[in-house]
Design a protein around this nucleic acid. Structure first.
Lengths: 117, 117
DNA sequence: GACACCTGTCAGGCTTTTCTTACACGTGGA
DNA sequence: TCCACGTGTAAGAAAAGCCTGACAGGTGTC
């Protein structure tokens, strides 16, 4: 209740972001505590560029937030942490979400005809 | 409460199935009432083969169920309806789900080294 | 027979996602 | 200077997803 419901498009983006084993693992790891990119990559066991890509996807979906910070020895570290979210997926929720979808409206394209042979 | 929680792999499949505008629309339409393939295709405005593919994906994820029925005039109709599901996605839920993931265990692959130049 | 419906599936093409490898830049310490 | 750590990003290959068009079969009605 405290969280605003996402639009249909936003919901699709969030679901797509979570629908990946590696990203699910990333979310789980960050849920245990914030971390910076290189350390997280070693922790999970993936290459840093790959993790970077997945973090971008998660951040774009609004599931995590990144912030730059300077460590004691002057290195620029990018810390990520999970954002607050609470998605409740039920049949009724999907009906509501589908009404706010923008991509390829059913009214846009002419109904594809199919001749019976 | 009444629904058993899916494993991590199952959750990923369910999320992937829902993370698509067209499939979201299909779910929303079926939530308003069961329907058969050809009619649903006309209703939504997509080709029947395409709808067939998406229905398979949704059924494989356990979100809908299909059943064959014979109409009054002897035609074989395949009716689909939404299955009962209730996914509650929170940070804690993702932690639990990630523990039951099978694909590409973090312990399997050796940590990819990266030489600094 | 020709047509109206219903079902399924396959081949091909296009787009998107996923991942690796390699490069670029920065700081601080021996 | 060289090395260790941090950051980002771009190119290319491999795989997966999405979609169209055409084909196969079935039933019942005009």
């Amino acid at each position: 209740m405290t969280v605003a419901q996402p639009t249909g498009d936003e919901l699709v983006e969030m679901l797509a972001a979570l629908a990946n084993p590696l990203r699910l693992r990333i979310m789980a790891k960050l849920a245990e505590g914030r971390d910076y990119v290189s350390h997280l990559a070693r922790e999970i066991g993936v290459s840093r560029p790959l993790l970077h890509m997945h973090l971008q996807r998660l951040e774009a979906a609004g599931l995590i937030t990144g912030s730059f910070e300077l460590s004691d020895d002057g290195k620029a570290m990018k810390y990520y942490e999970v954002a607050e979210f609470d998605l409740h997926l039920t049949a009724a929720a999907l009906v509501a979400a589908a009404q706010t979808l923008t991509s390829s409206e059913p009214t846009t394209g002419p109904a594809p005809k199919e001749r019976s042979r």
